[in-house]
Amino acid sequence: MCNCSENKKVITIDPLYSPVEGTIVKACQMTENEKFFEIRLEGGKELGHMPGQFVQFSLFGIGEAPISVSSSPTKEDKSTFEVVVRKVGTFTEQMHKLGEGDKIGVRGPFGRPFPVDDLKGNDLLFVAGGIGLVPLRSLINFVIDRRRDFGDVNILLGCKEPKDRLFTDEIAEWEKMADINYACTVDKAAPDWKGNVGVITTLIPGVDLDVNRTYAVVVGPPIMYKFVVAELLKKDLAEKHIVLSLERRMKCGLGKCGHCQINDNYVCQDGPTFTYDEIKGLEEAL
């Protein structure tokens, strides 16, 4: 009908959705389904993240996926950051095929970090279930690097089987540190396993907490949150002192596409970290 195309003009758009170049400088298989990547941004530019934030990785032709950053910003070599990717879908399967020297697109960092300022001066209880250790490792190493800013540190880890444990070498280091209490449990033991057996909640009653000055930071699968939070509340820990990180489907990371929305919260912008009092009662959250 209408033919006014002579008026058509080309409008330049800020490349908000265009990824920047990342190069994989180290890649290694950690477990059957989890692979570790160390990534260097173009020109060694610092990612500029804080613990708890995530990036959107991109492979053209395949798509994008949100992945938590696992390294601490206090890491010595600021020109790289680390992630661990679990193979759960098309994108992550393709990402697992990548190795050292391969390029990957990066957008971000996105999201609200763990409330590091609130944690300062307080005792910390870290509870990680399975792959939940990945984002929590960023915060744990942050705390270790700034140890004097924080009080007592307790780390509780849980996973399905001994072979699913991540960062075992690094955890062995944490275990040796005199100012960190550490405990680990598996749901199902292997023949040579000498540690605890049972779900992660079984470790909580044994922890000695000063509830007035303790923050618990909990990251794990959705089902774990319900039980761990209940156990922490039993210990009289304040709801504001329980910090969680939620996983949702995300497309834009910019608070627009709607996929990650929990009630009126956009997880990509308002989260992924929340205190329990912010999300309790939200049916869609846990």
Partner: peptide, 21 residues
């Protein structure tokens, strides 16, 4: 379209749009 890309590259090569008033 949010942008065009070449396979094997990581950044978009063209993010412009065409529109008439």
């Amino acid at each position: 379209s949010l942008g065009k890309f070449d396979m094997g590259e990581v950044s978009m090569k063209d993010t412009s749009i065409e529109m008439e008033p």
